[in-house]
Amino acid sequence: MRIPQLFLVALFPLAACGPQAEPPEAAPAEAVVFRGGVLEPPRERPSFRLKTTDGAEFDFASETAGTLTMLFFGYTNCPDVCPVHMANLAAVRKDLIPSVNQQLRVVFVTTDPERDTPEVLARFLNQIGGNIIGLTGTLEEVERAQRAANVPPAYKEGDGENYSVGHMAWVIGITPDNKTRMMYPFGTRQEDWAHDIPLLLTQFPAP
């Protein structure tokens, strides 16, 4: 296992001299280039109440206050965007240093509460891993949550049991200073997450 790594290090000595995976020092915000889209001006952390997959009440604003929160509205039957977006975010979490990981919350709100029962949602998120918090509620509650997050409400496409749900495919990044600052479209890659997450924590610390 180690020999090819050593080989690569020998092949690219400059790469081996690069900085370690420590959180970067805080730099002036205007000098920092994020890989995600920056919202100008930033908005307040959204406030809504839903239920976790255990059935417990979850007050989003207070439960996630002071943390870097990645909020996504999607559904478990999504054939493409939702599982890929969440899986990539979950994969990056495994490589983050513990101090960074502890300050990160990833929240998945189902936009299809009819089919995404708490059990279905829990199974879906367990398969993905990455300690993603799953939230659900009635359709009205979920729509209220989307409006609070300034996201257009999701809508059903098609009839019957195999309908799909049109929803925004962006992950919303809410920084520890309780501002909604970032938008991550589908296409954001693992190395982009790994780049931005530590930077967001150092640039916008909790008040």
Binding site: P83, V84, N88, V92, G187, R189, Q190
Partner: peptide, 16 residues
């Protein structure tokens, strides 16, 4: 085998 992150956007972002 040893890349830290997926090298190809094609497969990283492909539907499962």
């Amino acid at each position: 085998t040893f890349a830290k992150y997926p090298l190809y956007a094609l497969y990283e972002l492909a539907p499962r």
